[in-house]
Computed example of a mutant assay.
Amino acid sequence: MFRFARRSGASLRSGSAPWDDDPVTDPTPEPAAPRRRADVERNERAIVDAASRVFSASGVDAPVREVAAAAGVGMGTLYRHFPTRADLMVAVYRHQIDECAEAGPALLASAPSPFVALLAWVHRYVDFLGTKHGLGNVWQGDAPGLTALHQLFLDRLLPVLSSLLDAARESGEVVADVRPYELLRAVGDLVAWTVHDPDYDVRHIVTLLLTGLRQEQPDWEQTDAD
């Protein structure tokens, strides 16, 4: 679960140890130069896509062989592209962060109203966060790498949420005073409970939260004074 750190400057490359669940015994031969030829890039995309599916289904500690099998590549190919689990996770989460960020403008252009676009994007954000349980465990001993990934998360997603909120306010569908960071974190905190309770419908709770933004909020200081 992201902890919404506001620090920046650390490298996204992790210094963690190599994969420890499946040692390479028969590595795939190195591809001919140039290294970044089409088949190499295709393999990398296949590994990232497969890892995204496997991590979503089995968690970030899933055996590396599951990822290689899902990608249709050999173990040597996977290790050559991603020497450590953290290296692969950086690639997966950067890809997912980019997809989530790019979905905002697309939803705003296609949804029947800005609020519908906002709700659809936040639901997508909920799904994105659902794959992040256990992320911190993989980065044990590499706090700078985890902090850098958090910062990338904020840098890419906060502007998207801000534009969606602005559009919903301009249309009159959102009237509550809430900052994008507050909403991003509130939804993240709600998602955190999902891993502990399978009967907890986080999408339903998040929908209730966003629906509340369509109403003026009470002045709690004035209410307390009364």
Rank of each mutant, 00 (worst) to 15 (best):
P112I: 14
Q222L: 14
L157F: 10
S113C: 03
L190W: 05
L12I: 01
E216P: 11
L165D: 01
V160T: 09
Y79F: 15
D166Q: 13
F55K: 10
S110Q: 09
T77H: 05
R42H: 14
D155L: 10
W121L: 02
P144Q: 03
D21W: 00
A186S: 14
I205W: 08
D26K: 07
S56F: 06
H150V: 01
N43Q: 10
R156Y: 00
S16I: 15
R65V: 15
L164E: 10
A70W: 13
P29L: 02
Q215F: 13
L161T: 00
G134D: 08
S110C: 12
V92S: 06
L158Y: 07
L135N: 01
T77I: 05
V40E: 09
T194G: 11
L78C: 03
L12Y: 03
D155N: 09
I97K: 11
S14M: 01
G136M: 07
A143P: 01
D155G: 09
D199I: 04
D98S: 13
S113T: 10
T84P: 12
A62S: 03
A32E: 01
E41F: 02
A167M: 14
R53K: 11
L78P: 00
N137L: 15
W193A: 15
E41W: 06
L12E: 02
E30A: 13
A57G: 11
N43C: 08
L12T: 05
V174C: 04
D22Y: 07
A33Q: 14
T147E: 15
M89K: 05
S163T: 12
D155A: 11
A117K: 04
H123S: 07
C100I: 02
V178T: 08
G136F: 15
M75H: 09
L78S: 05
P198T: 08
L165V: 05
S16R: 11
L213S: 12
V191Y: 05
M89C: 01
R13Q: 07
L164N: 06
P23H: 01
L135I: 15
R124M: 10
A106C: 12
P31S: 03
D127C: 06
M89T: 04
Q217W: 14
A62D: 00
P31V: 02
